[in-house]
Simulated assay, not measured.
Amino acid sequence: MASEDDEETTGDAPETARPEAAKAEQAVDPKIAAAVAAAEAAGAQNGESVRIDSWIWAVRLVKTRSLGATACKGGHVRVNGQNVKPSHTLRIGDEVRLRQENRERIVIVKRLIRKRVGAPVAAQCFVDNSPPPPPREAVAPAGIRDRGTGRPTKRDRRELERLRGLMSGGAGRPHGQ
């Protein structure tokens, strides 16, 4: 019986260490957890490397791998403060700065993956330290007409011209011509 008690106590020790990990796993959606497992299987194994252009495509920072390579060649991608070529190899913990569309993305590499994955899984492969995007400018909608009302009448067109003239700061077309 002593051997059974020993087995129970040895079995309990790992379980007491596991509740924190089990709670963390329960907090993650099971679908995401399965996708993460698939991404890890598709990821780089020990000793293998991942190219920067391939990684930024895989974690969905750019739409295509060739756009990632073009961004690297154009000097828009920096790893640990230095411009890199598309063939630069990444390591876990590297800081990647990607400049695109008047915005700079700053990410820290958490996991190396080679294949493109879904957005929830991709978000777990890096820590995003980017500043928030600038607010979008509010643009007044163009003159919207109800559906089925047909073309504007001459009176409607004159009102639109008058409004456009006021909005653009000009007087529009001079009268009498």
Rank of each mutant, 00 (worst) to 15 (best):
T64A: 08
A138S: 08
D146G: 15
R116P: 03
G143W: 11
T149S: 14
K154W: 06
P152E: 05
I113D: 01
V77L: 01
D146M: 14
R151K: 12
R147W: 14
V79N: 01
P135L: 10
F126N: 01
R147S: 11
S66T: 14
R105C: 10
V109R: 04
K85I: 04
C125D: 03
P134Q: 12
G74I: 02
I144Q: 14
V77H: 09
A122E: 11
P86T: 07
A140E: 15
G74F: 00
A122R: 06
N83Q: 11
Q82N: 12
V77K: 05
Q100N: 12
H88I: 01
K154Q: 13
V121F: 02
L67R: 09
R99M: 08
R105H: 13
R114W: 02
N80H: 05
R116C: 10
I92A: 02
R147D: 11
Q100K: 11
G75S: 09
R114Q: 11
P135H: 05
S87G: 13
K110N: 14
V127C: 03
V127M: 07
T64I: 05
H88C: 06
R91W: 00
A71N: 13
N83S: 12
Q82R: 15
I113Y: 00
A119G: 09
G75Y: 07
R145K: 14
R136E: 14
A138T: 11
E104F: 00
T70L: 12
R97V: 14
L112T: 03
R147F: 14
A140C: 08
V109K: 04
E104K: 04
C72M: 08
L67G: 04
K110R: 12
V109E: 00
E104N: 09
E104V: 15
G93R: 07
R78C: 03
K110G: 07
P133W: 09
R105W: 15
E101H: 10
G75W: 01
A69D: 03
S130F: 11
V139Q: 08
P141N: 12
D128S: 02
R91T: 11
E95H: 13
P134A: 13
V77T: 02
K85F: 08
A140P: 05
T89P: 00
P133Y: 07
A123I: 04
R116A: 12
N102W: 09
A71S: 10
V127D: 15
N129L: 14
G75D: 05
L112E: 08
L90K: 00
R147P: 02
K154D: 15
R99W: 10
C125N: 01
K110F: 02
R147E: 12
I144Y: 10
P132V: 09
V84A: 01
R147L: 12
R136G: 13
G75I: 09
H88F: 11
V139I: 14
R103Y: 12
E95P: 05
T153P: 01
A119C: 07
V84N: 00
E137C: 01
K85W: 06
L112M: 09
E137V: 15
T64N: 08
T70W: 04
G118A: 13
S87A: 15
C72G: 11
